[in-house]
């Protein structure tokens, strides 16, 4: 019993020492960064996608489909990738759970995602047609994988941090996804109401960047206190 207690104390002491020394971080404490992404001016209209290049895609979308590169509702912007660009120190364990991307209705879902370096990404084909998944990173090795069968799944990883990696289907040119690859877990994607929250951020001062595939980037500086929540809103407008 005493041995067990001593062993427990030793493990706790070593773990604490590692964390204090800036070793492996477990992102389960700290403050949070919350905000909203807005759009100034009239939102660009969404254009219908012509899916006649593949009858199966047409059939999967009998009512048609609008492009999802720009999603703005009530002045709030969805699908903005928000992440800590500068100020993060230490190394972080990659999550054990897989990031999932689906190909459904000849569209990627979700379109904008974040992953950690080395984290497994599971890509599924839920369509009754063939797709190829073609990633175009500059820092990691590209892949172009055939997915001809409905229900097929493949697993991939990116080996280096990069903002952002484009993923496309060469068969269906309207299909695009963007993956933010980071060596830390402090990122979020804005929801339909433009809101985002980056949780468990260690106390410190950071540069936060908001990235949108059409509108570019915006940055802000924030200081996070232990257990506190700090606000950081972003605003985009039409490019001149």
């Amino acid at each position: 019993m005493m041995n067990l207690l001593l062993r427990g104390i030793a493990v706790t002491a070593v773990t604490t020492a590692m964390l204090l020394a800036g070793g492996v971080h477990i992102a389960d404490a700290g403050g949070s960064i919350t905000g909203t992404v807005s759009f100034e001016g009239d939102a660009p209209s969404r254009r219908p996608i012509r899916m006649s290049a593949d009858p199966a895609c047409d059939a999967a979308n009998p009512d048609g489909r609008l492009g999802d590169a720009i999603l703005i509702a009530d002045g709030k912007v969805q699908n903005v990738f928000v992440y800590l660009k500068e100020g993060v120190t230490g190394t972080f364990e990659k999550p054990t759970e897989m990031l999932k991307i689906d190909q459904k209705g000849c569209m990627y879902s979700p379109r904008i995602v974040g992953t950690m370096v080395g984290q497994t990404i599971e890509i599924t084909n839920s369509d009754s047609t063939l797709h190829n998944v073609h990633s175009m990173p500059k820092e990691s090795k590209q892949f172009n994988q055939a997915m001809p069968i409905k229900g097929m799944k493949i697993k991939k990883r990116f080996t280096a941090a990069e903002i952002m990696v484009r993923v496309k289907c060469d068969v269906h040119p309207w299909m695009a996804a963007w993956v933010g690859v980071l060596d830390h877990p402090f990122f979020a994607v804005s929801a339909a109401d433009g809101s985002f929250t980056i949780e468990n951020v260690p106390a410190g001062t950071y540069t936060v960047e908001a990235w949108h595939e059409k509108f570019g980037t915006r940055t802000a500086s924030v200081t996070v206190s232990e257990g506190g929540s700090v606000g950081s809103d972003f605003s985009f407008a039409r490019a001149n």
Binding site: A53, D54, A56, T129, L130, N144, P148, D170, H172
Partner: peptide, 20 residues
């Protein structure tokens, strides 16, 4: 994306229906 086979076969499924 594959070669010498096409989507793992001699002819991909519905290859003549899909433009690219």
């Amino acid at each position: 994306p594959d070669w010498p086979l096409s989507y793992g076969g001699i002819n991909p499924p519905r290859w003549y229906e899909i433009d690219k």
